[in-house]
Design a protein around this nucleic acid. Structure first.
Ligand SMILES: Nc1nc2c(ncn2[C@H]2C[C@H](O)[C@@H](COP(=O)(O)OP(=O)(O)OP(=O)(O)O)O2)c(=O)[nH]1
Ligand SMILES: [Mg+2]
Ligand SMILES: [Mg+2]
Ligand SMILES: [Zn+2]
Length: 517
DNA sequence: GCCGTTTTCGGCCCGACTGTTTTCAGTCG
């Protein structure tokens, strides 16, 4: 079980407890929080457990004694008796109904109890029939909303990788700017936080004519259907197969609203609790004295910095706002400095037309020089896989490649060009190129391109063998994952990182949009 | 179920939109 598997199991427990009803909502929330915590954690839960047992698990945020034991059971057996027990009597399809917009646990349970629906298809038939309307509280519009929700669900593409979602968000912003009544406008939510995958697009704006902008938003050509439309907030379903939310606020509350709408939800809750401690209330409208019911004067709202400052925190970068310890770090003045684009002084992973690249070595060197990079490494593929063009495991092939690099150096003076290669790590951890060939390079990037599903222990050993190879300088795209397509390979990351540190081998932070590895 | 400048019990974020509601529950951000 990976962190993701554990998170999904905890989430499932939360959903089932909600569906059954009568459960303490805060207990349900505890399962949800734990799921988010495990999913966002930079540590591998299995490694934590193997090193420190349930005691160590309990040190993890939102994991206490009970959940530590449940996680232990999951890691040991791959199953969880508690979930099995709770699941009894709950049809599997029932939980999928919760994916329909507007169908929460209460309404789903009601229709299950009253009409015996067990799946989205059952729900659809019910909403199309006259039967539903016989029940108090379920009118014509309710049935329509259900059918709309089901139609959206069937076209929904699920969480999209950031590089696919961000252009959609930018396009929406451009469209809204054309409306003429938009003053400020920002992308918020998970896109602004730079999350790897995006559930929906969130946009915040100010306007002199909010109603008109909302009407404009809901009738954009990108919009397939409208889920909710109010004065300050609307939700639409895009033809692209994803939701978009627009929030419009007063100029004077833009900072507080941006803070709220950027999230994450758990970050919001964390900083709102800091407010409560000081007898203050934080919402998207600002930081106020008093409680929600007895709200006093406004203390801060204009900018995010101002709001953070008023609750005693320095500005926290959106990328850090996941409630993974950033608030505590901020309180202690220990926030990390994030890498900026201007920090990049070299490109150590570049593919030319010699393998799967689209550009010549010389053209890339020129472009790098123009961007002010100090040096680059050409790292064409060296892979045994037939379909990958590139460097072969022969003296002649390597010679041809190195000569091409030499030629590029002559063509583009004024930037250092390292002779590198991205060499496949074979099943046993050895490299595709033999040592005699490897030693002719300046820079060796070792990467996994096959045998993705080997057992964890073997993969850990395989990575260690690769790192110990004296010719290897860097492990490229360390987990080999592809966002939305392929899970990363599983190994004991802590042990591998420790080995890499010991041997001074770099771990690449691969920023290819579909890897973010 | 978790957690602690409210420390081991008693809280747990705050507000918008929808529908059929005569006063608010459910769902969602
Ligand atoms: N205070 C508070 N804020 C919330 C809550 N739910 C959502 N938000 C805020 C923070 C979120 O980042 C923002 C947008 O909500 P989304 O549901 O779109 O979440 P987000 O964009 O973070 O992730 P996503 O990729 O869309 O799943 O709204 C909540 O329950 N409480
Ligand atoms: Mg979102
Ligand atoms: Mg949203
Ligand atoms: Zn690769």
């Amino acid at each position: 079980m990976t962190n993701g598997d554990i998170a999904r199991t905890l989430e499932r427990i939360a959903l089932i407890l909600e569906l059954k009803g009568g459960e303490n909502p805060f207990r349900i929330r505890a399962y949800e929080r734990a799921a988010v915590s495990v999913r966002n954690m930079d540590k591998d839960v299995r490694s934590v457990y193997e090193q420190g047992g349930t005691k160590a698990l309990q040190q993890l945020p939102s994991i206490g004694k009970d959940l530590a034991e449940k996680i232990e059971e999951m890691l040991k057996t791959g199953k969880l008796a508690y979930l099995k027990k709770q699941e009894k009597g709950i049809p599997a399809g029932l939980i999928t109904i919760l994916d329909i917009e507007g169908m929460g646990p209460k309404r789903t349970k009601e229709l299950w109890d009253e009409f015996g629906i067990q799946s989205i298809d059952d729900l659809e038939k019910l909403a199309q029939s006259d039967e539903l309307r016989t029940r108090k509280g379920w009118g014509k519009k309710s049935a329509e909303a259900i059918l709309r929700g089901i139609a959206q669900h069937r076209k929904m593409r699920g969480r999209l990788p950031l590089p696919q979602a961000e252009p959609l968000a930018r396009e929406l912003v451009r469209s809204l700017q054309d409306c003429g009544h938009v003053q400020r406008i920002e992308i918020a939510g998970s896109v602004r936080r730079g999350k790897e995958t995006i559930g929906d697009i969130d946009i915040l704006a100010t306007s002199d004519k909010p109603e008109e902008v909302m009407a404009y938003f809901c009738t954009l050509p990108q919009v397939e259907s409208v889920t909710a439309r109010g004065r300050t907030k609307s939700t639409v379903f895009l033809r692209a197969g994803m939701d978009a939310d627009l929030r419009i606020v007063e100029e004077g509350a833009f900072g507080a609203a941006l803070l709220y709408f950027t999230g994450s939800k758990d970050h919001n809750i964390r900083i709102r609790r800091l407010g409560i401690v000081k007898k203050r209330t934080l919402s998207e409208y600002g930081l106020f004295a008093g409680t929600p019911k007895k709200k006093g004067e406004k203390i801060a709202a204009k900018t995010e910095e101002e709001v953070y400052k008023a609750i005693g925190l320095p500005y926290i970068e959106p990328e850090l706002r996941e409630d993974t310890g950033e608030v505590q770090a901020a309180q202690r003045g220990k926030l990390p400095t994030l890498v900026q684009e201007r920090d990049v002084i070299a490109d150590m992973q570049m593919h030319s037309v010699f393998s799967d690249g689209k550009t010549s070595m010389a053209d890339m060197a020129r472009a790098a020089k123009a961007r002010g990079l100090r040096y680059i490494a050409i790292t064409d593929h060296a892979s045994p896989m037939g379909m990958v063009k590139g460097i072969r495991n022969t003296k002649k092939s390597v010679q041809t490649y190195l000569e091409a690099i030499k030629k590029a150096r002559k063509q583009v003076p004024g930037i250092r060009i390292l002779a590198g290669a991205e060499v496949d790590i074979l099943k046993d951890g050895t490299l595709y190129l033999n040592d005699e060939l490897l030693r002719q390079f300046d820079w060796i990037v070792a990467t996994v391109h096959q045998y993705f599903h080997e057992p964890r222990k073997e993969t850990t050993a395989r990575m260690i063998v690769a790192i110990r190879n004296p010719y290897v300088h860097m492990i490229g795209h360390p987990t080999a994952r592809m966002l939305g397509k392929r899970q990363g390979i599983a190994y004991d990351m802590d042990t591998v990182l420790e080995t890499a540190r010991k041997h001074s081998v770099a771990m690449e932070l691969n920023t290819s949009p579909d890897r973010l590895d």
